[in-house]
Design a protein around this nucleic acid. Structure first.
Lengths: 354, 354
DNA sequence: CTTTTTTGCACAATCGATGGTGCAAATAAT
DNA sequence: ATTATTTGCACCATCGATTGTGCAAAAAAG
């Protein structure tokens, strides 16, 4: 029953065992046997043998033959971050429900690595590719195009393939507004030079967020200056350094902080670890990303939760279209008030044996 | 130069172009050409053509021929959690540095899904499999064994393959000790029935942690009762419900909380969202997992950081051995005091264009 | 100028699954 | 009983890369 330690059974093994030809075995096992007018009894015989010998198809062979693999790829900048990891989680569920096999890989926000990784995926004949947060989506597009692979951008848009991204401008407006309102409600007048943005770099998302931030500042506070924008890249360390520098210079933090992403927020944490509680007494933080733990920090943290479910749903919809238009689809993010614990993709996992 | 939209070049195409045989082309492009005594000029000719035509090997074909794929798999319970996502991050870096292609998939802590996923991976002839936090590592072992695939357990041990896991017992002792010491330092006497453990289920990690927790309680507080152990499974929702039930019954939370994992901690967050600040005024929490944001909550949170780098390093070491002994390797975790922002795998990523 | 050795490469089988084509045997139609 | 259909399946080429084997031509040895 259990062919211990031996190599896997192939259709040829079953062919010998059953006395049928390999092509018949193949047809039976991949479900096309009715189309090929195989007798039902033959099919049953072969299915029985397959089960006995624990046959499973060699997917590389199948993939070679059909030049499709059943794999669907998700290219991520990094894993270690709630935004992307929850994206990975929803992605897997979606792909599985389509009967395919999800493959998630990260490329460290490195254009070279992105291209190399995608080349590898293409060499495995992945069927579709979801490109999330790529630094250079259009080059990736080039590779996919040449290989005839359906693909779509998520999170950061490209100009050559359809993209599904957060409405970063609106989100930033909402977030900035919420920060300011927080001060208003406490009857505190916030001066324009007391509200800063930290983090992000020169990518589409950051630019949009900065624009939204500045627009609202101008509208509500009547002013805004370049000095209030501190792009630090997506690195906790650089962000920490930026906070330290500011603190060194000014003797305190700005009272209002717009932080471009949870990764940058980690930079603030590092800064916090170096300074006493009081430093953050009247701080109000807005973070463009949602992290459940971040929402419960000792000062008010307003967050933006990007709707990865809707983004992926839309992306799956678009990628299924024959010839999807190269447009950018905006998905509305959600404002999350302080001390909020939202449900996430993990909640749809049933926990056995609790 | 750019074969637009057409199909990918194969060794046969290059064979025609170069006038050499396909086998020569193959040898040149996979680096074995010196062994095959191919003239250097021939090699250069072919390499040039390959570059011109953007040749990349069809890895399914190669994999079929060698019955190896160059893929190395990591099976995870879930993505959306800092412990596992940081594991994925280090895993990818390690695999890449070995010149292979990392593939990360999750199986939702569902034994069925675990087996199905691993079968699929095996069908793609993955070379090695790292099995992290599997509910049923030994069944997974069965599949790998039958397919002759090197594999190793991480996080949760099996009995049939070597395992690398955290020293959960010691970690739990450290954590429990630190919680109690926190009260001691504040000159508060903690009664045994004021220190509870929430979360976890009937798996090896939870059992060890519970044992460590109880041992220290008995040693330091002189007592411990079954009632203080509240396993809730790995579900935020169930954990929240457990807290609500407790609160309903007792009118307050225990002053000392040992929380079995960050996922369970999210259950506490959900509880927190429903109750005012004061409910948590004199709370001390220990969490068996590290999350940077969790470390800065308004009450003291002591955390355990499991050393995923060392675990993976050890795992890679073991999996490289010819016939690794079926033993369990314990990796010491680290106690993390409140308000600590540790560096993580993301820090080793260079951020361009900051 | 032979004989031996080395160099440089082509041939062909193989990995496992797929699907078009063809052909006997069984059944139906006349 | 003869021809026309239908049923049930086997054959074989194919996907792209790898590798053991063999054999000419070139170089070295005698």
């Amino acid at each position: 029953m259990k062919p211990q330690g031996k190599k896997k059974a192939t259709i040829y093994d079953l062919s010998l065992l059953s006395g049928c030809s390999a092509s018949t075995v193949s047809a039976v096992l991949n479900g096309t046997w009715r189309k090929r007018r195989i007798k039902e009894s033959t099919a049953e015989l072969i299915q029985g043998l397959a089960e006995q010998h624990q046959y499973t198809a060699n997917l590389q062979a199948r993939g070679l033959r059909n030049s499709r693999s059943g794999l669907v790829g998700l290219l991520l900048p990094v894993h270690d971050n709630r935004y992307f990891s929850s994206m990975a989680q929803t992605f897997e569920a979606q792909v599985r429900s389509h009967g395919k096999c999800p493959v998630v890989v990260s490329a460290s926000r490195d254009p070279q690595e992105e291209l190399a990784t995608v080349e590898t995926l293409i060499s495995y004949s992945i069927d579709e590719l979801f490109i999330a947060g790529a630094t250079d989506p259009d080059s990736v597009h080039g590779l996919c195009e040449a290989a005839g692979i359906r693909h779509i951008n998520i999170d950061l848009p490209g100009t050559k393939a359809p993209s599904v991204i957060s409405d970063n401008y609106q989100g930033a407006r909402m977030l900035t507004q919420a920060i300011i309102k927080r001060f208003d409600d406490a009857a505190v007048t916030l001066k324009p030079e007391e509200l800063f943005l930290f983090g992000g770099r020169n990518d589409h998302a950051s630019r949009e967020r900065i624009k939204g931030f500045r627009d609202i500042k101008t509208e509500m506070l009547g002013g805004d200056s370049d000095a209030c924008i501190q792009p630090t890249g997506y690195s906790p360390d650089m962000t920490q350094k930026a906070f330290e520098a500011f603190y060194e210079r000014e003797g305190k933090l700005p009272r209002g902080l717009f932080i471009n992403s949870s990764i940058n927020f980690e930079g603030l944490l590092r800064f916090m670890a170096q300074h006493p509680h009081e430093t953050f007494a009247d701080l109000v933080v807005g973070c463009y990303d949602y992290d459940p733990f971040g929402s419960f920090l000792p000062f008010p943290v307003i967050m933006i939760r990007q709707d990865t479910e809707s983004m992926l749903a839309k992306a799956f919809e678009l990628i299924a279209e024959a010839r999807p238009a190269v447009t950018i689809h905006l998905i509305q993010p959600e404002l999350v008030h302080p001390r909020t614990a939202l449900k996430g993709p993990l909640d749809s996992i049933r926990d056995i044996d609790a």
